[in-house]
Nucleic acid binder design. Structure first.
Length: 264
DNA sequence: ACCTAAACCTGGGCGC
DNA sequence: TGCGCCCAGGTTTAGG
């Protein structure tokens, strides 16, 4: 569920809550899948007594940096949450030395919690909001790629953080059909798409993420960007620009929303 | 290297 | 109330 803006919102919420606090204990609640090989025992052994220095985000990952040099890596999958207040789907509880806890909760258990004794090497493309992600670089990345642009936007190895909602939104804003092959994009279109990606992600962050069904911030509150989505989830509704009906199609097994008239 | 489809899960909403 | 079906902001894996 969560894409870059949602993960970034959680990061901003949770960092002040955990910063300079030490981890006292780890509890799990049927979290075998989420914790993979490492059980709560193993994880606790690795991080107990360690202080969280900061929380970073890379793509859709949260990285809790510990004073030992180790890192706690959390990916939220589709329904994962990092919460200051538990809900009924809590899988892992992290007890802090100030008497408080933060929680990893996940309904579908596509999310994961991992430990690295060093800064994790993540196979991710550039950060779309970073200064070094330029339109020129984006164009270079897309050169000779034969897949369609919608699928490529979801490829985390190409670009880190864009997911299904923001991909549809960015393509809409740039007037590009999600069915287009990347090779067919003109320089102008790549420039527009680059700008649109950065715009929708920034707007998403500003509005504290998009809540379609599950997403919540660290306090359990919904985001606000769902009210501002232009096409995602709006099949049959009027296109904000031309008033013709927005269509839903399936590309790469994922729902894709677009305006057939505005997006060529 | 690149591209695609299937698999991994649970729960909510809908029609009957 | 209940059942069956569809849907879901994600990644990994296997195969072409």
């Amino acid at each position: 569920m969560p894409e870059l803006p949602e993960v970034e919102t959680i990061r901003r919420d949770i960092e002040p809550f955990v910063k300079n606090k030490a981890i006292k204990a780890v509890r799990e609640y049927k979290a075998k899948r989420v914790l993979r090989g490492l059980g709560a025992k193993g994880l606790e052994k690795a991080i107990k007594g360690k202080t969280i220095e900061r929380v970073e985000r890379r793509g859709k990952y949260l990285i809790f940096k510990l004073d030992s040099g180790g890192c706690l890596l959390i990916h939220l999958g589709m329904t994962g949450k990092v919460l200051k207040v538990p809900d009924r789907f809590v899988k892992v509880e992290f007890k802090l030395n100030n008497g408080k806890s933060f929680y990893f909760s996940d309904i579908r258990m596509f999310g994961r919690v991992q430990y690295f004794d060093h800064y994790p090497v993540l196979k991710l493309g550039p950060e779309p909001l970073a200064d070094d992600f330029t339109a020129e670089r984006f164009g270079e990345m897309l050169r000779r790629r034969k897949a369609n642009i919608k699928n490529l936007l979801l490829d985390q190895k190409l670009l880190a953080g864009v997911g299904n909602i923001y991909a549809s939104e960015a393509l809409y804003l740039s007037g590009i059909s999600p069915k287009r092959k990347a090779t067919s994009l003109t320089k102008t279109e790549i420039f527009k798409l680059h700008k649109a990606i950065r715009r929708v992600l920034s707007e998403g962050i500003r509005h504290r993420g998009t809540t379609i069904s599950d997403y919540q911030d660290a306090s359990g509150k919904s985001g606000g960007y769902q009210h501002r989505l232009r096409v995602y989830g709006r099949s049959g509704e009027a296109c904000p620009k031309c008033r013709s009906a927005i269509k839903r199609i399936v590309i790469g097994q994922r729902s894709t929303f677009y305006c057939p008239k505005c997006q060529k």
